[in-house]
Design a protein around this nucleic acid. Structure first.
Length: 573
RNA sequence: UGGGAGAUCGUCCAACGGUAGGACAACGGACUCUGACUCCGUUUAUCUAGGUUCGAAUCCUAGUCUCCCAGCCA
């Protein structure tokens, strides 16, 4: 979609160099989510990176579910994740599961045992922890570390056969209990979990750990560049150890299974990059889940959630804007927190060109044009887009009584105020210049009506129409107005870093009580005809989208995507 | 006190021994039938200290700060 050149970054450069040196015939990447939750905008970076690199260099990118922990996973998430990837505009070469490779991974484990570099350990989780040592002290060998190969083979077969209880045995790599890198202190490769798996059912009761399954999955799929986030940096030595021990591209005992699955293995390289973080948001799955279960938001598709497909689609952010935002954010190993305004900027840029304009009044105040007849009624023709004639025009009914935005009138204006004031003039968008002649108040001194006269010589198309006035305000004909529910969303948290609990407060203490405001708005009539999910600009207010599920012609519901930039509000504050 | 990684405007990203540049933000101005969009301008940065070099963000040395790791999670 973008016509700007792809910005370079260190991973892209590695790929370019690898290709230039003939290291690979073609490049292959993968996006490997665990189906244990919904994706959020942080994942979108990985999606854009992996699929983007593959697309740019005519490679392939698989969508692979890293489903090695059946207790936490659910098919609901595998469906949702696929939708997210597609919503972002990407297509996978193959849809795979790590669980597709359980047989291959099992045979790899067998080789490790035969080669004397893996053993069955009878230690409990607690005991393993005690043997592991600490960050500064080396661990101690398991008493089962030197079991003979035959015994390991037998025990591992019995683990697989279901003879042992969960947690009673593990298969562990035999590496180095004194390593400064804790991942190398004889890490677990397999554990027993007698639970059904969302993809393989009850076929297995032993499941490979991430470190073991992921590297083999990468290798058998022929992934050339295995891109992951920074926290896996110190797993890389284990990743490479597995590759050294298990040249899956040259293991005869894997041939039939590889063939069955149509796989062509090669040696992958792991490269780490920093996560995408946004201020005023939390990203951890646990915290997001709490927001949902604690009813702080209305479900995973609440527009305030940082989830890409469900929430961004719900709130109407175009996928293009998300992709541009991520492209502009770059790829580095530096940990960073992006300002939310970067995202908003992309959304506004995108919507400014694509969204048609309409008028809506969110906080109505009655205006009566006293020099028009009671029965006055006409139809004005207004452009749908100020910079794109091809978007056509629409007719907007105009009559004697209108709604304007309450904040567009002030009895005692501050200096610099360009809108309607007693005795002052202002332009009604598409109509002409009106002068405020009189104000009606109720017993509480609240303004209930503003009476104006319309200067006929300034009507649209007349010679006086060019006369300058400071302000132009939007309006809706009261007689024709459509009453509608409009949901005004704001940021979910009041502080830039809700995760910071140094002051003793948690992210829950920083929830914005006004993150959503539901109002009854008055819309121009044409808005009855828009389809759900249509994105529009309500002039001077912001970008809005017709709610994908709740919007109906007879009962319109719009969500605010974001406001327009408002330099007056800023100056007035 | 172990292992791994990272430090450039307020924020993010460039600069790969040769003028520290861009985006966003902020500020000022122009334009405007959206206080939008657009346009113009301004402010602000190389973690510190040494060294090498005609020349250092970049190379070397020594510090400092930040992040990650002690799941049979990923």
């Amino acid at each position: 979609m973008s016509d700007t050149p792809t910005p370079n970054h260190f991973i892209r450069q590695i790929v370019i160099d690898d290709l230039a040196h003939g290291k690979h015939a073609g490049i292959a990447t993968r996006f490997p989510p665990e189906p244990n939750g919904y994706l959020h905008i942080g994942h979108a970076k990985s999606i854009c990176l992996n699929f983007g690199i593959a697309a740019e260099f005519n490679g392939r990118c698989n969508l692979r579910f890293d489903d090695t922990n059946p207790a936490k996973e659910d098919p609901e998430y595998v469906t949702a994740i696929q939708e997210d990837v597609q919503w972002l505009g990407f297509h996978w070469a193959e849809l795979r599961h790590a669980s597709d490779y359980f047989e291959l991974i099992y045979r790899c484990a067998l080789k490790l045992i035969r080669d004397g570099v893996a053993f069955v350990c009878d230690l409990s989780a607690e005991e393993v922890r005690e043997h592991r040592g600490t960050l500064t002290q080396p661990g101690r060998n398991s008493p089962f570390r030197d079991r003979p190969v035959a015994e390991n083979l037998d025990l591992f077969a019995r683990m697989k056969a279901g003879e042992f209880a969960d947690g009673s045995h593990t298969l562990r790599a035999k590496i180095d209990m004194s390593s400064g890198n804790i991942n190398l202190r004889d890490p677990a490769l397999y554990r027993i979990r007698k639970v059904d798996h969302q993809n393989t059912g009850d076929a297995w009761c032993i499941y490979p750990m991430y470190d073991f399954a992921h590297v083999i999955s990468d290798a058998v799929e022929g992934i050339t560049h295995s891109l992951c986030t920074l926290e896996f940096e110190d797993h890389r030595p284990l990743y490479d150890w597995c590759l050294d021990q298990l040249p899956v591209w040259a293991m005869p005992e894997l041939a039939d299974e590889l063939d069955r699955l149509g796989l062509k293995p090669s040696r992958p390289r792991q490269i780490e990059f920093s996560r995408l973080n946004l201020d005023f948001l939390v990203m951890s799955k646990r915290k997001l889940l709490t927001l949902v279960t604690g009813n702080h938001v209305n479900g995973w598709d609440d527009p305030r959630m940082p989830t890409p497909c469900v929430a961004f689609a719900a709130v109407g952010s175009p996928a293009d804007a998300i992709r541009n935002f991520i492209r502009n954010a770059g790829v580095t190993k530096q940990e960073s927190v992006l300002e939310f305004s970067l995202l908003e900027n992309e959304v506004r840029n995108d919507l400014d060109v694509r969204a048609e304009r309409r008028m809506a009044v969110i906080d109505p105040l009655k205006v009566v044009i006293v020099n028009l007849a009671d029965s006055h009624e006409e139809s004005l023709t207004m452009a749908n887009h100020p910079k794109d004639e091809s978007r056509g025009t629409r007719s907007v009914p105009f009559s004697r009584e209108l709604w304007i935005e309450r904040e567009d009138f002030m009895e005692v204006p501050p200096k610099g105020y360009h809108r309607m004031v007693p005795g002052g003039e202002v332009r009604l968008r598409g109509v002409g210049i009106v002068k405020c002649e009189h104000v009606v108040k109720n017993s509480n001194d609240v303004v209930t009506e503003v009476h104006c006269t319309l200067d006929g010589s300034t009507r649209h198309g007349m010679s006086g129409a060019d006369r300058k006035v400071k302000g132009t305000i939007h309006w809706v004909s009261a007689k024709h107005a459509l009453s509608a529910e409009v949901r005004l969303y704001d940021r979910l948290f009041t502080v830039a870093d809700p995760d910071d609990d140094n002051d003793g407060k948690t992210y829950r203490d920083h929830l914005n009580p006004n993150s959503v405001r539901v109002v009854n708005a008055q819309l121009e009539t044409s808005l009855a005809r828009v389809a759900a999910e249509t994105r529009l600009q309500f002039e001077r207010l912001g970008y809005f989208v017709a709610d994908r599920v709740d919007h109906r012609a007879d009962q319109p519901v719009f969500n605010r995507i974001c406001t327009l930039r408002d330099s007056w509000a800023k100056a007035a504050k």
